[in-house]
């Protein structure tokens, strides 16, 4: 297959259209001046975005989402980076097992992770609390941090640390001045991953959030079931643009 055949390109174009069209359609409909979800919308307006930012419930949900995502990002990045550094520099037999264990939440059905966390957190009184929710999101966010940081560590030459030590730098200084400046793009990409994961997370939130703790996905879910308005599409479009920005950010970090 030196050059892709016309058939292959045609099928690919169709599948890519199928992949992108629904989101573009929803994006367009969110600018509709009427409540009807008809195509094409009879014009363009920011009515539903004004509704979104003027509605207390949506604003509160956005704030909750940002709080949980920021907290998750900080905890998951700290834990994931520490684990990755330890796993990379350490020389012990259970290394592969530990990586498998830490990335297990990626291949476990989300609903099972969520239910298991609900049972565990209920027994210690963490279910329905903000720390509980952040911890729950952290569990599914850590694997992404771990993997991105491990990837950037794989290009790091560990002899540099030994050189630093031989020059008299204590480990903490070597870590700060030698290791971190070289792997920070990986850590930053991991942090973006963690933030995005938490922002999108729904199933764990469904089980672990308290009655008043509405995040954006939870608010969207509640509203869709109740009454579908273009305001929900405005919320979806904002989240979509956020994830698009995250994608560009990680791509830029990958290039560094």
């Amino acid at each position: 297959m030196q050059r892709p055949s016309g058939l292959l390109l045609g099928v690919t174009a169709l599948v890519l259209a199928f992949l992108t069209a629904p989101m573009l359609a929803a994006l367009w409909l969110s600018f509709s001046p009427t409540e009807l979800l008809r195509f094409p919308p009879p014009g363009l307006s920011l009515r539903w975005y004004a509704d979104f930012f003027g509605n207390e419930r949506w604003v509160l949900a956005t704030r909750n989402s940002l709080i949980v995502a920021t907290a998750t990002m900080m905890v998951a990045t700290a834990l994931g980076t520490a684990a990755a550094i330890g796993l990379h520099l350490g020389n012990f037999r259970a290394r592969g097992l530990l990586v498998a264990l830490l990335t297990l939440p990626m291949v476990t059905p989300f609903i099972v992770t969520a239910a298991a966390m609900f049972f565990a957190f209920s027994t210690v009184g963490l279910a329905g609390t903000l720390p509980g929710l952040v911890l729950g999101h952290t569990v599914v966010a850590v694997p992404f941090v771990l993997i991105t940081v491990l990837a950037s560590l794989s290009t790091f030459d560990a002899t540099l640390l030994r050189a630093a030590a031989s020059l008299g730098a204590p480990p903490s200084l070597a870590l700060r001045r030698v290791l971190l400046p070289r792997i920070w793009p990986g850590i930053a990409a991991g942090a973006v991953f963690a933030f995005a994961t938490s922002l999108d997370e729904f199933v764990i939130t469904l089980f672990l959030a308290g009655p008043g703790q509405f995040t954006l996905p939870r608010q969207m879910y509640a509203n869709v079931r109740e009454y579908m308005t273009p305001t929900i599409l405005a919320a979806a479009s904002l989240l979509f643009l956020a994830s698009f920005a995250f994608l560009l950010l990680t791509e830029a970090l990958r290039r560094r």
Binding site: P22, A26, D200, Y221, V224, M228
Partner: peptide
């Protein structure tokens, strides 16, 4: 990268 909830909502609409 875009969330499952966002894409499901789009389909619902």
């Amino acid at each position: 990268w875009s969330s499952v909830m966002v894409r499901s909502t789009a389909w619902f609409a």
